[in-house]
Simulated assay, not measured.
Amino acid sequence: MKIDLTGKTAIVTGSTAGIGFAVAQGLAEAGATVVVNGRKQDAVDKTIAALSKNVSDAGKRLRGVAADLGTAAGCEALVKAEPKADILVNNMGIFQLQDFFEIPDEEWTRFFDINVMSGVRLSRAYAPGMVEKKWGRIVFISSESALNIPADMIHYGLTKTANLSVSRGLAKRLAGTGVTVNAVLPGPTLTEGVAEMVKDDAKKAGQSIEEAADAFVKEHRASSIIQRAATVEEVANLVVYTCSPQASATTGAALRVDGGVLDTIA
Rank of each mutant, 00 (worst) to 15 (best):
N91F: 01
N91Y: 00
M92V: 15
M92Q: 14
M92E: 15
M92T: 15
G93K: 01
G93Y: 00
I94N: 13
F95K: 01
Q96R: 09
Q96W: 08
L97S: 05
Q98R: 03
Q98I: 03
D99A: 09
D99M: 07
F101N: 15
E102I: 05
E102A: 10
I103Q: 02
I103S: 02
I103T: 09
P104V: 04
D105W: 04
D105I: 07
D105T: 11
E106C: 03
E106G: 04
E106H: 10
E107M: 10
E107Y: 09
W108Q: 05
W108R: 05
W108V: 01
T109M: 08
T109Y: 12
T109H: 10
R110N: 13
R110H: 11
R110G: 10
F111G: 03
D113W: 03
D113C: 04
I114Y: 02
I114W: 01
I114C: 05
I114K: 00
V116K: 00
M117R: 07
V120Y: 00
R121D: 11
R121V: 13
L122M: 06
L122R: 02
L122E: 13
L122Y: 02
S123H: 02
R124T: 13
A125H: 07
Y126N: 07
A127C: 04
A127E: 00
P128K: 10
P128N: 12
G129I: 04
G129R: 05
G129V: 04
V131R: 01
V131E: 03
V131H: 01
E132I: 07
E132A: 12
E132H: 02
K133A: 12
K134E: 06
K134V: 12
K134H: 10
W135R: 03
G136Q: 08
R137K: 13
R137I: 06
I138D: 06
V139W: 00
V139E: 07
V139P: 05
F140A: 03
I141H: 02
I141R: 00
S142D: 08
S142T: 11
S145F: 03
S145I: 04
A146S: 08
A146Q: 04
L147H: 10
N148F: 07
N148H: 12
N148S: 15
N148T: 15
N148K: 07
I149R: 04
I149D: 10
P150V: 09
A151P: 07
A151S: 12
A151R: 15
A151Y: 11
D152R: 02
M153P: 00
M153F: 01
I154L: 00
Y156H: 05
G157S: 12
G157A: 09
L158P: 08
T159Y: 02
T159M: 01
T159V: 07
K160L: 06
T161D: 13
T161G: 14
T161K: 02
T161P: 04
T161W: 03
A162H: 08
N163I: 13
N163E: 14
N163S: 11
L164C: 12
L164K: 11
L164G: 14
S165G: 15
S165R: 11
V166I: 10
V166T: 13
L170A: 14
A171D: 11
A171H: 09
A171K: 10
A171T: 12
A171Q: 12
K172Q: 15
K172W: 04
